[in-house]
Amino acid sequence: MARTLAGLAVLVAVVAGVGSEPFLRALSSVDPGLVFVALVLSAVATVAAAWRWSTIAGRLGVALGVREAVAWYYRSQFLNTVVPGGVVGDVERAVTQGRDAGNLPQAARAVVIERTVGQLVQVAIAVLVLVYLGSEFQGVLLPVLGIGLVLLVLAVLGTAASSARARRAMRRELGELAAGIGSPVVLLRVVIASVVVVGCHVATLGVAVAAVGASVPPLRLAALALVVLVSGSIPLNVGGWGPREGVAGWAFAVAGLGASTGVAASALFGVLTMISVAPGLVVAVGSTVRRARTHSATPPAVLTVAHRGVGS
């Protein structure tokens, strides 16, 4: 709840700073062609992410077909977008797959590793691009990323020093991480899939930038897009909204393109993202209907025995 409120507060501050015009410009820029492009890019990104998840899950002993993974990933993205917190969909797919595979802990680890690797690859790409193409952002963003890395390392070391039990747990999880992506071939697949996902998101934001009327050279656009995308990972947001719009306004202002243009592009990106995960709603409804039909088709005697078994 606190994170959601913080995200709302940031969004209100952005509106107070630039007004409602950028958001209205974003909404007025939506058209069928733009939606089609966003849906295609989202589909490619979803398939790549689902392949990444399927690969890691298989390594951890909870086999998952790519086709099934794509359906669950769409549903996960939809829930992450519409439910505050941004992780409900990931929890749901971990639990669902864990129940189906009969191994909830390994299914949960597969989801955590998959999402973590994706975020790390995105940050690594952002750092490389900023070093070579984003000189105007280096003085702020690179120190921020460096401080974040130091804090993460300190948190890990502090946890390890707290108790022997914590150290055993960390060694166990590191072993699971090695099992999930330890093979060079698997690591390459996971990195390639992550690069495809990031590339599709960058392309979607680039389309949004063009749609709101800004003309930005491709390499400069890549740097701006990665700055905005990394800010969208800050866990103080509402379905991705909040810090992303604030950072987009700052980054575009620094680049000489105007804060309102950055906010408009980020807002349009958010709208396109929400539309692009709409297939997840279809998957969620279909899954609910199938479960209801399966339940109604189960003979009453079987249901009675099952309930007795659970209570015993």
Results as ranks from 00 to 15, higher is better:
Leu151Phe: 08
Ser266Glu: 15
Leu224Asp: 05
Pro235Leu: 03
Gly246Arg: 00
Ser194Val: 02
Ala193Met: 06
Val150Ala: 14
Arg189Cys: 00
Leu257Met: 12
Ala155His: 06
Val230Met: 06
Gly148Thr: 06
Ser231Val: 02
Val198Phe: 05
Val212Glu: 08
Pro217Asp: 09
Gly240Cys: 02
Gly158Phe: 07
Val144Leu: 14
Leu236Lys: 04
Val185Ser: 13
Arg244Gly: 04
Val153Ala: 14
Val209Ser: 01
Ser194Gly: 05
Gly158Gln: 06
Trp241Met: 00
Leu229Gly: 01
Gly256Met: 13
Leu151Ser: 08
Pro143Gln: 02
Ala248Thr: 13
Val197Phe: 08
Thr159Leu: 15
His201Gly: 02
Leu257Ala: 11
Gly258Val: 04
Met170Tyr: 14
Leu174Ser: 13
Pro235Ala: 12
Ala223Phe: 03
Ala178Trp: 15
Gly242Asp: 10
Ala248Asn: 13
Leu152Ile: 01
Gly199Asn: 05
Ala210Gly: 08
Val238Phe: 12
Glu173His: 11
Arg171Cys: 09
Leu154Asp: 00
Pro218Gln: 10
Val212Lys: 00
Pro218Ser: 09
Ile234Cys: 04
Leu268Val: 09
Val186Arg: 02
Val238Pro: 07
Ala161Ile: 00
Ala203Asp: 08
Leu221Glu: 08
Leu154Gly: 07
Cys200Met: 15
Arg167Ala: 14
Arg165Ile: 09
Ala169Asp: 15
Arg168Thr: 15
Ala214Trp: 00
Val228Trp: 00
Gly246Met: 02
Gly213Phe: 11
Ala210Ser: 10
Val153Met: 05
Arg167Ser: 15
Ala264Arg: 05
Leu257Val: 10
Ser215Leu: 05
Leu151Arg: 06
Ala211Ile: 00
Leu149Tyr: 03
Arg165Leu: 07
Ala166Pro: 13
Ala203Glu: 10
Leu174Val: 12
Pro184Gly: 03
Val156Ser: 00
Val228Tyr: 02
Ala193Trp: 01
Pro217His: 05
Gly206Ser: 09
Arg189Lys: 14
Gly258Ala: 04
Leu224Thr: 05
Ala179Lys: 11
Arg189Ser: 08
Leu142Asp: 03
Ala253Val: 11
Ala161Cys: 01
Ala255Glu: 15
Val150Thr: 06
Leu174Glu: 07
Gly180Phe: 07
Ala155Val: 06
Leu149Ser: 07
Ser231Pro: 10
Ala160Gly: 13
Val216Gln: 03
Val186Ala: 06
Ala264Tyr: 09
Glu176Arg: 14
Leu154Asn: 03
Ala166Val: 08
Val196Thr: 09
Ile181Pro: 00
Val228Pro: 04
Ser215Asn: 12
Val254Asn: 08
His201Asn: 11
Ser266Ala: 15
Val198Pro: 01
Glu173Lys: 05
Glu176Ile: 11
Arg171Tyr: 08
Gly232Lys: 03
Val202Ala: 07
Thr204His: 04
Ala267Cys: 04
Leu151Lys: 05
Leu205Lys: 00
Ala161Phe: 11
Glu173Arg: 13
Pro143Ala: 09
Arg244Val: 03
Leu141Gly: 09
Leu187His: 08
Val212Cys: 01
Leu187Pro: 00
Ile234Lys: 02
Phe252Asp: 13
Val209Asp: 07
Val185Thr: 13
Val209Ile: 10
Val197Asp: 01
Ala178Met: 12
Val228Phe: 01
Ala248Gly: 15
Gly213Gln: 11
Ala214Pro: 09
Val209Glu: 11
Leu219Pro: 14
Leu224Cys: 10
